[in-house]
């Protein structure tokens, strides 16, 4: 009995941290939402670009650059990663999935190179220097912001909550512009888009860049939170992102029709995913080595159920005919 109580207490204590991490991963999932849901592209770049964001951010902080600049550069680096996938897909005509895998593979080396920029060699882990660095989020702030040694606005769930709302607001604006609408049309019906004079190749490129920029930004926050960037930090990111999107969709699709709310649902989906994982880890005391298998199984189930329940309308099959009228 006492053991159980202790586990519950531990779980309760871990919630602010879990919430923070859920929100950080939520930003990554929102990026994935752009490619997966809006453009209907399966982009596997994210496992690599997530780490790219972390690597760029931490290496710049280690070189004494301000945090905001490090994060801007992380975002830009993610956009570059996305543009490579976009180039392979739209110019070289390689299928999207394969393009993403190729970029992701190449990024493995690039990420180690970025992390080792200061030392001039490839390294696989880079820690934020304890001195002089001012991360925007950090696991340490969970207590420091509450005991007064850091300002309250640095309380991670608060910081990340505000950041998430800001990002959703910007995306809401963007996808309501002429360009944003044309990107949505590109994903919804490419034939229609081209017939309406939309350069679908450029739009896919923009979508991939924006998405991976957000993924990298999320990676930069994740690295700051943990105090280091690590070559494996993005492994399985795509699964977490998909889980967040699907959980958000299953739970809120009836309630949230507005685009901004749909993005919010993705973020909430990420939080729920993290809470569930944490519950399994602390309440059931499952070894964390089992996590990846569990995550994969959970996402597989969530992806399967809508196809058979009949409640969820099946997505219309994508037209594979090259001709525009036949």
């Amino acid at each position: 009995m006492a053991v159980l109580l202790e586990r519950f207490l531990n779980f309760g204590n871990s919630l602010p941290g879990v919430l923070s991490q859920g929100l950080i991963w939520g930003i990554m999932a929102i990026g994935l939402y752009i490619t997966y849901k809006i453009l209907e592209l399966s982009d596997l770049t994210v496992d690599g670009s997530f780490c790219t964001g972390g690597a760029v951010c931490i290496v710049m902080m280690a070189m004494g650059q301000p945090t905001w600049l490090a994060m801007v550069c992380a975002f830009l680096a993610g956009m570059v990663a996305g543009s490579i996938t976009g180039f392979l897909h739209t110019v070289c005509k390689i299928p999207a999935i394969l393009s993403g895998i190729l970029t992701q593979l190449g990024l493995w080396t690039i990420n180690m190179f970025i992390m080792g920029l200061k030392q001039g060699e490839l390294i696989s882990t880079l820690t934020i220097p304890a001195r002089n660095s001012k991360p925007l989020v950090s696991a340490m702030f969970l207590t420091k912001a509450l005991d007064g040694s850091k300002p309250l606005y640095l309380y991670p769930p608060l910081t990340m909550g505000v950041a998430t709302v800001l990002i959703i607001a910007v995306l809401y604006w963007f996808f309501g512009t002429e360009r944003g609408c044309s990107i949505r049309a590109t994903g919804a019906n490419e034939h229609m888009a081209r017939a309406q004079g939309i350069n679908t190749g450029v739009n896919k490129m923009i979508g991939l860049m924006l998405a991976n920029g957000l993924v990298a930004l999320s990676g930069s926050l994740f690295a700051q939170y943990n105090g280091n960037a690590e070559i494996n930090m993005g492994r399985g990111a795509i699964v977490i992102g998909l889980a967040a999107i699907i959980i958000g969709d299953v739970l809120f699709s009836k309630l949230f029709k507005n685009f901004a709310l749909k993005l919010l649902a993705v973020s909430i989906g990420a939080i729920i995913y993290y809470v569930v994982i944490q519950a399994v880890l602390t309440l059931l005391k499952v070894d964390s080595q089992y996590l990846k298998l569990m995550s994969a199984a959970i996402v597989a189930i969530f992806l399967t159920v809508p196809n058979f329940s009949g409640k969820h309308p099946k997505k219309h099959k994508k037209q594979e005919v090259p001709a525009c009228s036949k």
């Binding site: 949505r184 049309a185 919804a188 019906n189 034939h191 229609m192 888009a193 081209r194 017939a195 309406q196 004079g197 939309i198 219309h316 037209q319 525009c324 009228s325 036949k326």
Partner: peptide, 18 residues
Amino acid sequence: AKFIGRVFQDPMMGTAAT
């Protein structure tokens, strides 16, 4: 497309359903 308006045989093809 600047010069051309089009309607296809397949009613699904000319509009964005979502």
